[in-house]
Design a protein around this nucleic acid. Sequence first.
DNA 1: CAGTGGTCTAGACCACAAG
DNA 2: TTGTGGTCTAGACCACTGG
Lengths: 232, 232
Amino acid sequence: MALARRGWQAVQDEVRRRIHAREWRPGDQIPNEADLALEFGCARATVNRALQALADTGLLDRRRKAGTFVAQHPVRRATLDIPIIRHEIENQGLTYDYQLLRRNRKRPTLNVRKKMQIGPDAAVLHVTSRHLAEGKPYVYEDRWVNIHSVPAILDVDLAHQSANEWLVTHAPFTAGDIAFSATTASRQEAKLLGIKAGDALFVIDRITWDNEMAITSVRLTFATGYRMHTTL
Amino acid sequence: MALARRGWQAVQDEVRRRIHAREWRPGDQIPNEADLALEFGCARATVNRALQALADTGLLDRRRKAGTFVAQHPVRRATLDIPIIRHEIENQGLTYDYQLLRRNRKRPTLNVRKKMQIGPDAAVLHVTSRHLAEGKPYVYEDRWVNIHSVPAILDVDLAHQSANEWLVTHAPFTAGDIAFSATTASRQEAKLLGIKAGDALFVIDRITWDNEMAITSVRLTFATGYRMHTTL
DNA sequence: CAGTGGTCTAGACCACAAG
DNA sequence: TTGTGGTCTAGACCACTGG
């Protein structure tokens, strides 16, 4: 049997093959690392690397003392790259434009306070903008920035640099929540995105955190037809 | 300095801290593994493990010979678990029901042939069904199965077991494409999902492959209000 | 060419949890 | 208690690629 790859990836391929061929079925316990290392003629660390990679993708389930099992319901775990919108547009070979619509220091709404877990008197910046591809509205952005966590945002010229791009390089986050949903365009949204009211919109809500402090909460509303794609 | 965690995770934490504190800025090259190992008083393999984990999340950019750099635009890379619908519903404490609507061997449409890369005479099974939560329509499923890649599907009682659950345990895939989008409900979809025509729908299109052969292509249409959530 | 990350090894000890 | 995975080590060689 000629192995396509070398090292731990060869072990990974062989384990995958056995699962795929149903030699090891969902729920089955597979041999322990030491035995596999012996069988494959490599160090246990090499087997460990391979099995850990497979566990990361959800194909295996590993528990100390209990052993390693083929996952009962191989969870489809996808890694999703959330691109910078400018890059996403430019990578399609389209021209990118950015328009700042509004920039206001204001009191957070109740909803925003709840999501960002801040008080009614917290200093926040509300920024709305549009990103355009080939001159056509691509996404509408509605963002709240916690000034307390990134005071320098006040000195940024948001007319010429999107808040996202500045934040990404100046306010690294430690955690984030992201949600995807669908909605229909209100009259206002339709106008902003150059579509008809009632058209379907793809929405991304994202909040990023610096430890326990919210940095920013943003809603991205994509024009009709947007598809987010990835592989498994 | 007391480290919160031990081993490679402590190294990871410290590197993250330096990036976060802007001691190392986006685009900067950081010391090589050997130097960091010396500084942290651990083996190079330990540093390697930590930096590799950070590179996996997109925070670092590593190139042989060139070195390790803080990513210019820390790509937000999210891992997304695509659950079995039954589990997703039951995990919310709701009762789950499944209804097979139609099950036909038929010729694939042009669109399906293109997506699955099969010929006009390929044997395919077309299955439509509904998943219900607490008796209410939750998602409408429109699926095509390539009989050539999983002939045993013909013997499965799809009235009592969803095609997805059977496939997941009997037809492991080697690759998959998945896309998310938004649309508005047609009259038919509205009827099937118990909502009004024109309401917003969240759509997942998924194709899974066994090497170069398509196993199944499915469109999941979620009732209004569905949110897909994850963390960064 | 040579510096860097990528990986392997053999052995060791640790942490966890099942029995 | 004890088997299992989780991790660390020190050293070695390899693979890639920038200079």
